[in-house]
Write a protein that binds this DNA or RNA. Sequence first.
DNA 1: AAACTGACCAACG
DNA 2: CCGTTGGCCAGTT
Length: 113
Amino acid sequence: MSLRRARDRRPPTDYAAFRNAVYAVVARIPPGRVATYGDIARLAGRPRGARLVGRLMADATAPGLPCHRVVAAGGALGGYGSGPAFKTAQLAAEGVIVRRGRLAEFRTRRWVG
DNA sequence: AAACTGACCAACG
DNA sequence: CCGTTGGCCAGTT
């Protein structure tokens, strides 16, 4: 059989299914809690798909999807279509404080399913 | 078809 | 605690 790099690329996942899985996971993040793009990717079955999750969030049109609860690794804020100030405000409304682009208490606020 | 582009991430210095 | 670097993966040029 042909050698494949140990790096072991892509389990053959189809994008549509992955997208649905991502939406489903994001919808389950409780208010006042957050998950990272990488967390979502992993929970949706694509451990190295963090960037794809970012794309999906950027494209997401689904109303009511709490994409503001999806943040970057290490407790950084991560991006947001309507700007970081808006994301910060939405998090603040749930009691999650963001200072200098960092989440306070990220460790304990993080939701891992 | 090759190069570029992200709402990313971990390792390094 | 910053900034850089290399890797990631699908869409867009």
